[in-house]
């Protein structure tokens, strides 16, 4: 059974790590969480990114955050990846499985997953 005492233990364990955990912000993953995104399935996509970034040990350089309507509702769930010195990558019609793929191939492997990008859908 989870207890508040257990949360206290998590805090004690983590308080020295906080500075390290803030990350360098080298890569920013932004998930659209307006009505259009949520209705299309953004919640599991966001949760998959959060989980995989942590499990892959990428939380030092990758931050996952939310934004409102990006303006391309027909392509939701939409995920944008911002990386210093590189062009923004827009992934569209995402789901949890594709999110897992993006973490492995793009965020960890450094290769844009072209088939999920908006360019691939508009071509």
């Amino acid at each position: 059974m989870k207890s508040l005492a257990e949360l206290q233990a998590i805090k004690d364990k983590m308080k020295d790590k906080v500075v390290l955990r803030e990350g360098t912000g080298e890569i920013r993953v932004v998930v659209g969480m307006a009505t259009c995104g949520i209705a299309a399935g953004a919640r599991p996509v966001l949760n998959e990114f959060v989980q995989d970034v942590n499990e892959e040990g990428l939380s030092g350089k990758v931050t996952v955050s939310q934004t409102g309507c990006i303006g391309i509702c027909q392509y939701e769930p939409v995920v944008e990846v911002f990386e210093a010195g590189k062009e923004k990558v827009t992934y569209v019609k995402m789901n949890a499985e594709k999110a897992k793929d993006v973490v492995a191939r793009h965020l960890r492997g450094g290769q844009v997953v072209t088939e999920y990008t908006i360019g691939a859908y508009q071509a």
Partner: peptide, 15 residues
């Protein structure tokens, strides 16, 4: 309880 540990730390969210 958490003081300066962020609420959205992965371990806290899992908890």
């Amino acid at each position: 309880i958490l003081e300066d540990v962020p609420l959205n730390s992965y371990e806290v969210i899992m908890w």
